[in-house]
């Protein structure tokens, strides 16, 4: 589904964020990106949805070279990728259902279609009875559920989550992880950058560890830290 070929990223200020990354993520996988802050986890996710361009190398998503994509194609790439962020990125003045509907609105989906699909998405994340509330009236975990509903409403084949539980307490984090696993079981590929070592250790998914912009470990069913 996604392949990185010899990808390096050097930012304008001279910082090398990624150095010669080769990585193949298969369809349906659940992959944890781990590593210390500044190891290049965020940069790696940003390359997938063309928030950043690689300095060298290729990023192939669904057979398309993301780095060589024309400007006009980028929005259509992003509609195939759901994104979840540590800070939720909800619009505070819009109600819960409006926040979810926004993802359809900006892609020109009809009102009727929006009215049909938004409740479904809210039901999936268990917030159907909070549709009319504002994000500020929700707990952190609930806000992130809104973020997940918004990310999933276009039925993306890939979900990219950058530290989705970073601002949440352990119990809430586990509830969200169950939701992510459900989504993965329905066939959506998930790439998750995280510092939550207990979650990584327990779920035994594929773990890619980055350090100083390089892959130092790529282990199926691995833990947060190298066993050795």
């Amino acid at each position: 589904m996604i392949r990185f070929y010899g990808v390096s990223k050097v930012y304008q200020n001279g910082v090398t964020a990624l150095n010669n990354i080769n990585l193949h993520i298969r369809k349906g996988e659940f992959l944890f990106l781990v590593g210390p802050s500044g190891a290049g986890k965020s940069t790696l996710t940003k390359l997938i949805f063309r928030e950043e361009l690689p300095t060298r190398g290729q990023v192939i998503f669904s057979g398309k070279n993301v780095a060589r994509m024309r400007h006009g194609e980028i929005p259509y790439l992003r509609r195939k990728i759901g994104m979840v962020f540590q800070d939720f990125r909800l619009l505070p003045q819009k109600k819960v259902w409006e926040n979810v509907a926004f993802a359809l609105e900006v892609t020109g989906v009809s009102r009727r279609e929006i009215k049909r699909r938004v409740p479904e998405a809210l039901k999936m994340v268990g917030l159907e009875d909070k549709a009319g509330m504002l994000p500020t009236q929700l707990s952190g975990g609930e806000q992130q559920r809104v973020g997940i509903a918004r990310a999933m409403i276009n039925n993306p084949s890939l979900l990219v989550a950058d530290e989705p539980t970073g601002n949440l307490d352990p119990e809430t984090s586990w509830e969200l992880m169950n939701l992510f696993q459900e989504i993965n079981q329905r066939g959506t590929t998930i790439i998750m950058a995280t510092h939550a070592w207990d979650i990584v250790d327990k779920l035994k998914k594929r773990v890619v560890a980055l350090n100083c912009g390089q892959i130092v470990r790529d282990e199926e069913g691995g833990g947060y830290r190298d066993e050795a």
Partner: peptide, 16 residues
């Protein structure tokens, strides 16, 4: 600007 950045990662076209 916040709304705009959200619109962009949700896949809004530039003209939208």
């Amino acid at each position: 600007r916040r709304e705009i950045s959200i619109m962009k990662f949700l896949g809004a076209t530039n003209w939208f």
